[in-house]
Design a protein around this nucleic acid. Structure first.
Length: 367
DNA sequence: TAAACGTGGCA
DNA sequence: TTGCCAAGTTT
């Protein structure tokens, strides 16, 4: 921690700041489903879902998840396919794979009780420094920092911190600051209040300083620098990938789908067969050849594509041209391929891009 | 340390 | 339309 920050912390009226912040939170907090219950398992699930994901997006997923898996034991017993299916569309799928693995660990090694120490909870898959602090403070009242993007933004303004919050190493600076100012009598309220303030008042662009309960403690406001903070360097633009996909049907009404590899992008999700690279016609041929060579099917694609799906990921974009077609012959499928009925298909988890393909297919072909 | 890892909302 | 943003973690 640099000297200027120590100086700013020293001049802060910490006790009054804590009180202003916590009382505001008690008064103004949103009514959110994960605030109805202090079950550590439920807090944990909510924290994983909320990683890089908006509250409004999470709410319905959270409700469905806990309806299906109301206890930690119920989730530990779930099969992998249903686990992925309930996360379908939420993104960052390694979150749920890690959560499932970690929950099984808690059930087998901790008798189903979520660890309440930093040392133990941090060993769990998918539990990084933020989530560890969040679960410990919110579920157990342990005064650990829970530093997320909100907290870095809010504190960079209040304490006038010009460190680049895009750099991972910067988080430690804010954790040290939180250790100095956290309300040790109300760590759950305090941590949630910092995040809630970031979500409702101290927003990224045009913060509502005139409504801010801790305005009088904010150095950036006092010097008119609130809109210059936080410092965050931009990341580079995404790369572009062209693909060809095919929705292929057998003469007895089944569809050919395949499971993606267990690592990397959209791991373990299902998709319609795709190939990438090359120009349009090469790719069309490549897809047909691939299917005929690798899984011994005869394919007949319609002449033109029936849809094009552009899908933007955080680090790349897919442009998928999609054919409809048929498969026939003596079909010998590789392990990762499957022939399923229309009804069965919808039991499997697909990425949003392929959900879109399927939806369009059903509309065009009147299914 | 930087890049990978999803998706949808918004200016 | 494009880029940024949202309760981060893993490799």
């Amino acid at each position: 921690m640099n000297e200027q920050l120590q100086q700013n912390l020293k001049q802060m009226e910490i006790s009054k700041f804590q009180n202003d912040l916590v009382q505001w939170f008690i008064r103004e907090q949103r009514d959110l489903p994960w605030r109805k219950d202090s079950d550590p398992y439920k807090i944990w699930v909510s924290e994983i879902m909320l990683q890089q994901t908006r509250v409004d997006t999470v709410i319905p997923y959270y409700e469905r998840f806990l309806e299906k898996f109301p206890t930690i034991e119920a989730f530990a017993d779930a099969d992998d396919e249903s686990v992925l299916k309930i996360w379908e569309g939420l993104g960052y799928y390694s979150r749920v794979r890690n959560l499932h693995s970690a929950v099984k660990e808690v059930v087998s090694q901790y008798n189903g009780k979520v660890p309440n120490t930093l040392k133990d909870i941090s060993k769990l898959k998918g539990v990084g420094p933020y989530t560890a602090g969040a679960v410990l403070s919110i579920a157990y009242g342990v005064p650990e920092p829970a530093v997320d993007g909100n907290v870095m933004r809010v504190l960079s303004r209040i304490l006038l911190i010009y460190e680049d919050i895009a750099k991972q190493s910067t988080r430690k600076i804010f954790e040290d600051a939180v250790r100095e100012i956290i309300d040790r009598d109300h760590p759950s309220y305090f941590n949630q209040a910092l995040m809630e303030l970031g979500a409702l008042i101290c927003t990224p662009t045009s913060p509502s300083c005139l409504l801010c309960p801790v305005r009088e403690h904010c150095i950036a406001f006092s010097v008119g620098a609130e809109k210059d903070l936080p410092i965050k360097t931009r990341k580079k633009s995404t790369k572009h990938v062209d693909l060809i996909a095919a929705v292929l049907k057998t003469d007895n009404g089944k569809y050919l789908i395949r499971k993606r590899p267990s690592k990397g992008l959209l791991a373990n999700l299902w998709e319609f067969p795709m190939v990438e690279d090359g120009n349009f016609m090469q790719m069309r041929t490549a897809l047909t050849n691939y299917l005929e060579k690798e899984i011994k099917v005869n394919t007949q694609l319609e002449t033109g594509t029936f849809t094009k799906v552009d899908h933007v990921f955080s680090h790349l974009t897919w442009a998928i041209n999609v054919f409809a077609g048929t498969v026939s012959g003596d079909i010998k499928l590789e392990d990762n391929y499957l022939l399923v009925t229309k009804e069965e298909l919808e039991e499997y988890a697909f990425p949003v891009s392929h959900q879109t393909i399927w939806k369009t297919y059903k509309e065009k072909y009147h299914l």
